[in-house]
Amino acid sequence: MKCLLLIDIQNGFCTGGNLAVPDGEAVVPVANRLMAEGGYDLIVASQDWHPADHGSFASQHPGAKPFEMGTLNGRPQMLWPDHCVEETVDAEFHPQLDKSRIGFVQRKGMDPDVDSYSAFRDNDQLALTGLADYLAAKGVTRLDLCGLATDYCVRFSALDARAMLPSVNVRVIEDACRGIDPTGVEAAYDAMAAAGIGLVTSTTVLAEEA
């Protein structure tokens, strides 16, 4: 059972969004082609779905500015612009993403007291989203990830997939990802490779189905 996991391909992380990733929308046509031609049995998408008062927002910390380091529940926390607030256009999937092929959506980041980069669990690693159990129940044996942003939600989702689904072949499709900070992207790929996560391109994935 082959699964493609699309990470947070939402308006908020694309041009014009509240937390735009440079060139973020460039992943959309690649993701669409992977969904159509990649031979996947299951396609899942994660979606940031924050309450308006989420504690990771700089606006919730008097005097703080976005992209400063702060704290949340006593833990270090990057403070973000308000983004992907539930029921807003910013939180919607990119309009050009072929949502008709998505079989399941895993929302995350709904607890205002903890951030959630990973599609599998909150950053404190205490609360699980249930996605690992869902994929295990479906019999997934290969999990390919792509989306936004490489150095945050893709990285942590891939590492958690590797840790929580040890028998699954986990890979990240590099040209279907975009990151925020080049140094952070490099560190993310180093961490994923060190964890045994495969790094591939969409060309490789599509060739496997040719």
Rank of each mutant, 00 (worst) to 15 (best):
Q77W: 06
M78D: 00
L79C: 11
L79Q: 05
L79D: 03
W80A: 10
P81E: 09
P81R: 04
P81N: 13
P81A: 13
D82N: 10
H83I: 12
H83Q: 11
E86G: 12
E87N: 15
E87S: 12
T88D: 08
T88H: 01
V89Y: 03
V89M: 10
D90T: 07
D90C: 05
A91K: 09
A91P: 10
F93A: 11
F93E: 13
H94K: 02
P95C: 07
P95T: 09
P95L: 08
Q96S: 08
L97M: 05
R101G: 07
R101L: 13
R101T: 09
I102E: 06
I102W: 02
I102V: 15
G103S: 05
Q106A: 06
Q106E: 11
Q106L: 01
R107L: 00
R107H: 03
K108T: 02
M110F: 00
M110A: 09
D111Y: 00
D111T: 10
D111L: 04
D111F: 00
P112Y: 00
D113F: 00
D113V: 07
V114L: 03
V114K: 06
V114G: 05
S116N: 14
S116Q: 15
S116P: 02
S116T: 14
Y117A: 07
Y117I: 03
S118N: 12
S118Y: 04
F120A: 08
R121V: 03
R121S: 13
R121H: 14
